[in-house]
């Protein structure tokens, strides 16, 4: 029990990081996009747990709702609409795949170069007062809402109009003419 309280967050991180990575590899390597979409769902849920571990509870729940609920249902319906019965006859990878692998290797080199050895100073704030608003302690959702509806009100409204435009565009594009 003591071991769990001391190392619980680290163990959770390793477990769900491994799950996110493994299911991400499955997304790319699965021939059937249906299995790929379900692996992507596992990856999204694992990343939501990692959000929880970073004290971003509201973002984690929104991730589960929007990605795990909305976007994933959209993907699954579209995959079912599109006829994939000749899937086993086509090649999985494009002719430009070696170029893609080259870009991937360059990205790995870039990330390792920029992330390994990054140093940060000592922590000045404790996680407890990361969720306080104007000196008052608040939950993460409260704090996010406080910022979103005051400082970021205009971007919030723009985002809602943007979503409406996207919805109308999707309806028009998907319409049978």
């Amino acid at each position: 029990m003591e071991f769990l309280t001391a190392h619980g967050p680290a163990l959770l991180f390793y477990l769900f990081a491994a799950m996110a990575l493994g299911s991400a590899v499955l997304v790319v390597t699965m021939r059937n996009p249906m299995y790929g979409a379900l692996s992507l769902l596992v990856s999204f849920l694992s990343v939501a747990v990692l959000f929880f571990l970073r004290n971003a509870e509201f973002v984690a729940v929104v991730q589960i709702f929007v990605y795990g609920g909305g976007i994933m249902v959209l993907f699954l319906f579209v995959i079912m609409l599109i006829n994939l019965h000749r899937l086993h006859e086509v090649r999985m990878f494009a002719q430009s795949a070696p170029l893609g692998i080259l870009v991937g290797v360059l990205l790995v080199a870039l990330f390792v170069f920029s992330f390994v050895g990054v140093g940060f100073g000592p922590a000045l704030a404790t996680p407890e007062n990361m969720v306080s608003v104007e000196g008052q302690a608040a939950g993460n959702s409260e704090a996010v809402a406080w910022l979103l509806y005051r400082q970021y009100l205009l971007p919030f409204e723009v985002a809602s109009v943007f979503l409406l435009v996207a919805m109308v565009g999707a309806v028009i594009l998907g319409r049978r003419n």
């Binding site: 991400a24 997304v27 990878f93 430009s96 893609g100 870009v103 991937g104 990205l107 992330f115």
Partner: peptide, 14 residues
């Protein structure tokens, strides 16, 4: 970074 690279590989090669 690893998730991003895996996604980039999939987007560029599938």
């Amino acid at each position: 970074g690893a998730l991003f690279v895996i996604g980039a590989l999939g987007a560029l090669s599938r």
